Amino acid sequence: MAEMVDIELITIGERLRAVDQDHVAVIADSIRQCGRVLQPITISRKFATRDALRPEMTLLAGAHRLAAAKLAGLDVIPAEIVDDIKPLQAKLIEIDENLLRHELNPLDRAVFLAERKRIYEELHPETKAGVAGAKAKHGSASDTMSFAKDAADRLGFNPRTIERSVKIATSLSPEVRKNLVGTDLSKNQSELLLLAKQEPDAQIKIVELILDQKHGVKSVKAALERTSGKPKVVADTTQAEIKKLMDAWRHSGLTARRTFVRELSAGDRLLLQDLLDMANPDTEEAA
């Protein structure tokens, strides 16, 4: 149940995403009309010591609502209070709040999902790539679901969207991500995916060309053609590996296929099920 909390007592820590002042202004106008904040924020409450007279209040979710309440002149704000929450769990609350409540552009969504993956795997190290299969072979497989499955279930995203977003965030250099904030390129997922396939040095040159309007370069492909004559991507052996797998399967008899499936570890079977779910046409993103 929400409680009314003095705004001046709430501490705002480091956030993954800066507050959008235009959005804050819109919310503030709504607060002035209603006279109050309709949707409670979420804060953590913790006493630094046993003898502390006042607890530390730290914002978990609702940075825009808190900023808008201040702008509207309110002294108190309704808040859902979580006691003694761990730092990683607190960060997950912030991430999920943004992923669920805000219309994030592809770049922001990629950053949030990549950070969510990092935190999830830190909380559940047994779900990291390669670990689940090894544990299963030694009879210690965990029932904890993979990051992609957990995120898809909690956030309602298509697994392919999650996979692509994480690829963007982890493949772009921090400098490039910083330079892309607020640009049209940050709103175009296909452009970001192509950019993410380039070497780090090439990424910097491409972004510089696009952002410097005097060059008249408006796309990653055009920038690649300007700098090298043709698009260059980091060597990708995925297609060759797929061909080998498909050839081996197609040339195997029914008995061999059944034996192969039986020999899969518990971890490999979970991974295979996740891959089959991702390939299901019913869950594909609209073209």
Rank of each mutant, 00 (worst) to 15 (best):
Q239V: 10
K230D: 14
K244G: 14
D212N: 06
A2K: 11
E284C: 13
G130S: 11
I12N: 08
N105L: 03
A222H: 06
T259R: 13
D282W: 15
K70R: 09
F47D: 05
K232V: 13
S252Q: 12
D108L: 14
R262I: 00
K149M: 05
P174I: 04
A136E: 03
K86I: 06
A52I: 03
V207I: 06
R269L: 03
C34Y: 14
P231H: 10
A240C: 13
L180D: 02
H64R: 07
T227H: 10
T144G: 03
D6Q: 13
I206A: 08
P231S: 15
Q198S: 14
L155V: 05
L194E: 13
D184A: 11
A52D: 09
I210E: 07
K244L: 15
S173F: 02
S146E: 06
T227Q: 08
K214M: 09
G130A: 03
E175I: 08
K214W: 13
A235V: 11
I162T: 03
K244C: 14
Q21S: 11
A222G: 03
I77G: 01
A67L: 00
G133W: 04
D6G: 07
P159Y: 02
Q213P: 14
T259C: 08
D153S: 14
V131G: 03
H23V: 02
I10D: 00
K91T: 01
L276C: 11
T58L: 09
D274W: 01
S140P: 03
T127G: 07
K91G: 07
R45L: 04
A28P: 04
L66E: 10
A134P: 08
R257L: 10
E8F: 09
G267P: 08
L192D: 01
P40S: 07
A248Q: 13
Q203W: 01
V37Y: 00
R101H: 07
R269Y: 00
K244W: 13
G182N: 05
A25C: 12
A114D: 11
M278L: 15
K86W: 12
A90H: 07
R160D: 08
R32Y: 02
R118W: 10
V207N: 00
L100P: 06
R164V: 02
A248L: 15
D201W: 07
N179K: 15
P159Q: 09
A235Q: 15
K214V: 12
A132F: 08
T170S: 07
A287G: 14
S219W: 01
Q239A: 13
I7Y: 05
I119H: 05
I31W: 01
I12T: 13
E103R: 09
G156W: 05
L9K: 12
A63T: 02
V19A: 02
P78E: 10
L104S: 06
A287D: 15
R257E: 03
A141C: 14
D150F: 11
